[in-house]
C-alpha cells in the first residue's frame, strides 16, 4: 500500500496530509477534511454531487485520486466568495430567491458548474445552460427553477451588476 504526503489547497487554505494512492479526492475532502458540501452520489462520475473546481474547472471528485489533486487549487461550494453582506455568492442568492434547491443534495455541484460556465461563457443561452448541466442530476426540482436561477445570475453578470468571481 502506497502512502503519499500531499499538499491540498482547498478553498484558499493549505493542508498537508498522508493519503493512500487509492483514496479519491471525494473520500479525502468529505471524510477526512469535513467538506460535507462534496457528496457521494454514484461513484461513476454521472450524478455530479461530488463536483469540485480544480484550477477553476468542474471535475468529479469521485474520479480523481487525492494524490492527483496535490498542489492544485481545489474549490468546493463553500469556497465561493460571497461579496454581498449576506455572505452569499450571487448565484447562491438567485438559487435561494428563485427556489433552485429542494432537497439540496445536488445544489453545490449545480452552483459550481454554473459558476464555471459563467466565467467561460457569461452570455450562455438557456439551452447552453441546460447542456452544461447534463452531468448534474437533480431528482427534485425538474430543473426549471435551477435554470431560472442560473439564467438570472448570468443576466446580472452581463449587465455588470456583479462579477464572475
Amino acid at each position: 500500500m502506497s502512502t503519499f504526503e500531499v499538499d491540498l489547497h482547498v478553498n484558499g487554505s493549505r493542508r498537508q496530509l498522508d493519503v493512500k494512492a487509492e483514496e479519491t479526492l471525494l473520500d479525502v475532502l468529505h471524510d477526512r477534511m469535513g467538506m460535507s458540501d462534496v457528496r457521494y452520489g454514484c461513484g461513476e462520475g454521472v450524478c455530479g454531487t461530488c463536483t469540485v473546481l480544480i484550477d477553476g474547472d468542474p471535475v468529479s471528485a469521485c474520479l480523481l485520486l487525492a494524490v492527483q489533486a496535490a498542489g492544485r487549487e481545489i474549490t468546493t461550494l463553500r469556497g465561493l466568495e460571497g461579496s454581498a453582506p449576506d455572505g452569499l455568492h450571487p448565484l447562491q442568492r438567485t438559487m435561494l430567491q428563485l427556489g433552485g434547491s429542494q432537497c439540496g443534495f445536488c445544489t453545490p455541484g449545480v452552483i459550481l458548474t454554473a459558476v464555471s460556465l459563467g466565467r467561460r461563457n457569461p452570455t450562455a443561452t438557456r439551452d447552453e445552460i441546460r447542456h452544461e448541466l447534463v452531468g448534474n442530476l437533480c431528482r427534485c426540482t425538474g430543473y426549471t427553477k435551477i435554470i431560472d436561477a442560473i439564467e438570472t445570475y448570468l443576466g446580472e453578470l452581463g449587465t455588470g451588476t456583479i462579477d464572475a468571481h
Binding site: V46, P58, T113, G135, N136
Partner: peptide, 9 residues
C-alpha cells in the same frame, strides 16, 4: 462525449 467534468479530464 460525457458531461463537462468528463470533458475536463
Amino acid at each position: 462525449v460525457g458531461n463537462v467534468r468528463v470533458r475536463n479530464r
